[in-house]
Amino acid sequence: MTAGRRWIRRAGAAIFALALLYPFSAVFAHIGPWQWTPDVRGPALASIRISLLLTGLAMLIIVALGTPVAAYIAGCRRRERLIWQGVLLVPILLPPLALGILMSLAFGPNGSVGAWLQNYGVVMTNSATAFVLTQVYVGMGYYVLGAVAALDSVPASLQKQAALLGLTPRQVFFRVTLPLSQLGLGVALSLAWVRAIGEFGAVVVTAYYPAGMPVQLWVNLETFGLPAVMPLLMVFLAVALPIPWLVHVLAQRSRHA
């Protein structure tokens, strides 16, 4: 390929990238001064705290439950693996609003599990528990499917070699499989994080209260208009994007190293 043609292609790619990033130019849109009055600030700060804390908790649950499941699926034969992967795809493919409605019915006072939990004082609608549970449902499929791919990328020959060197299956997992798949697991977790922290459709049904950042953004937009949305939107972008973005870049770099 000639240098001239390469530059034309590069320019085409640059235009494509600019078009993708174009929505970010809205940060400089003329909407008047951003509003950060106490009536906006208080709920906004609370929503940041709620989102970070409860999404963090949801991620802990996702990793704790999802990693062993992913390890099991990664060790399954093809047919069984397809079944599990099919199940995990369901919450991913379900429209978020539909998932939220189904969850509020299943875990609400009219659902069998919801009614049972309510007997023990666990409220499954408009509560922190509902918020975390929804995020777990929303993010679990992304994490487990990504984790299976990450675990798959570790050569089976290395795991067998480690076992032949005297390591139990558990030791092989922690000393060989996990270290060699950690970047892939990080990518999987970052996808789950982005999906969960940005979730609106399902959370707005199951946990309108306590309001996380997406719901609070909606409330601010409806109540005060765009100027009250922008400060919280900046925080939202700052916490949702950089870490997953960095993990993906690192993963790509290591893949091409």
């Binding site: 020959s157 290395l158 067998k160 070699q161 480690a162 076992a163 032949l164 060197l165 005297g166 390591l167 139990t168 299956p169 030791q171 092989v172 060989v176 270290p179 060699l180």
Partner: peptide
Amino acid sequence: LPLHRRPLGYLTQEPGLFPH
């Protein structure tokens, strides 16, 4: 018998070193 309990060494043309 599980691999980790087999009293043997196995060397193939793939060195199989742990890269990390």
